[in-house]
Design a protein around this nucleic acid. Structure first.
Lengths: 221, 221
DNA sequence: TCCCTTAAACTAGCGCTGTAAGTTTTGCCG
DNA sequence: CGGCAAAACTTACAGCGCTAGTTTAAGGGA
């Protein structure tokens, strides 16, 4: 088949279809031929628009991260901003959990991921955290969010009562975790995030000073 | 080649070689043929000892988790036990970071992973946490550890000063993160874990009662 | 001691994979 | 209107997980 009158593929269409395919069938099922079939085209045609499979995955990952809201760092105190960011980050990732292992490799050269890191780090430094501390805090929250989105804790337990009854006395109810997957995972995230922020606020009060709720909105002088 | 006088493969030898291969070359490079070559054998021979590739990965994952120490839950107060566990867990995972994405899918039917979950959950319940809270706490710490071991935060940033200078004003020093990878990642983990535990201890004091440092070592009556 | 079963290696092959190379036809620009 | 770039194509390679069937040795029973 020759060049068509109207191009059948665009970068945007490829990325959207790839996202849908990964959401629906998982990362292992995502292949260039499978994606091409979904687009009504043969595998190698994709290489007219992307150089490698990873470049497609990068584009998918970055559109996912682009949905994360970091605006709190411009308008709210740092604790509230961190909380808003963490929840928004988690929502963005859990909407597309199958891409998380890929995305967790770091921002690399993806613009949305770098913009997010820039906003978070900048907000924390502006709030008074020393640069090294700001890096640690951003990383710690990312660890927590990525870990929570990477794989459902609740779904990690097999629905087989006999498995637990035999050898793991405290896990007798573990086979029921999957039923309550969402509330377990969200509850764990909420508890952990609140505890983390509580501890960070205490550390701030101890080493930096009283929390000023609008410091980030005032001029620094 | 027929059956040899002495078997060239054993489950243990396969698992050890697989671990070394994954550590050295990463999960994507780990294939049955590659592993077999490392063992001086052809690919399909492995299937005399394991039913599927995933079964090999399960065995690798479980030997990694088997190195995690949960003994603190039997002898120390729950905060100290959580701290010891989290560090031991992190050490075990960062010793074999390439297997973490696989392992993060949950304990499944792997005995060492289930034994760890059993010890943690049992210890928290014994310390006075309600069952649902104990589940959340165990999950939250797992999120944090898994996220921290999944991919180095510091190594996620490319060593290319120009990339940051152009568009990400706060990330001007980000290209130097990789140099200090270990101290950045460990510092972030230490800060986050301490904050998390601080917050959990506050929550415990508020909703359950004063912290009893030896409650877990006493009979409950 | 002979035989039969089982174990543990093999080869061959299926239908995948990512991607490189070269082909064909179309649309657009000078 | 000639020529080039674009965007699809086909073909092909090496490697993937895994199945099926084959070969030979080890070990147990008659």
């Amino acid at each position: 088949m020759p060049r068509p009158r109207q191009p059948r593929l665009t970068r945007q269409l490829i990325v959207e279809t790839a996202t849908a395919l990964i959401d629906a069938e998982g990362l292992p099922a995502f292949s260039t031929r499978r994606l091409a079939a979904e687009l009504g085209v043969r595998g190698p045609s994709l290489y007219n628009h992307f150089a490698t499979k990873d470049e497609i995955l990068d584009a998918v990952a970055d559109t996912v991260v682009a949905a994360v809201d970091t605006s709190g760092f411009a308008s709210r105190d740092w604790v509230a901003a961190l909380r808003d960011w963490a929840w928004s980050y988690r929502r963005a990732l859990t909407a597309h959990p199958n891409i998380v292992p890929y995305l967790a490799q770091g921002p690399g050269r993806r613009p949305a991921a770098l913009a997010m890191a820039d906003a978070v780090y900048g907000g924390l430094v502006r709030a008074g955290w020393p640069p090294a501390r700001a890096t640690h805090i951003g990383a710690a929250v990312r660890y927590f969010v990525a870990g929570s989105a990477l794989g459902s804790f609740a779904r990690g337990f097999v629905e087989d009562p006999e498995l637990y009854a035999a050898h793991y006395p405290h896990l007798r109810q573990a086979h029921r975790l999957a039923e309550h997957q969402q509330s377990v995972d969200e509850g764990a995230f909420a508890l952990g995030l609140d505890a983390l922020l509580h501890g960070l606020a205490a550390e701030y009060a101890r080493t930096i000073g009283p929390l000023d709720p609008v410091e980030s909105a005032r001029p620094s002088g």
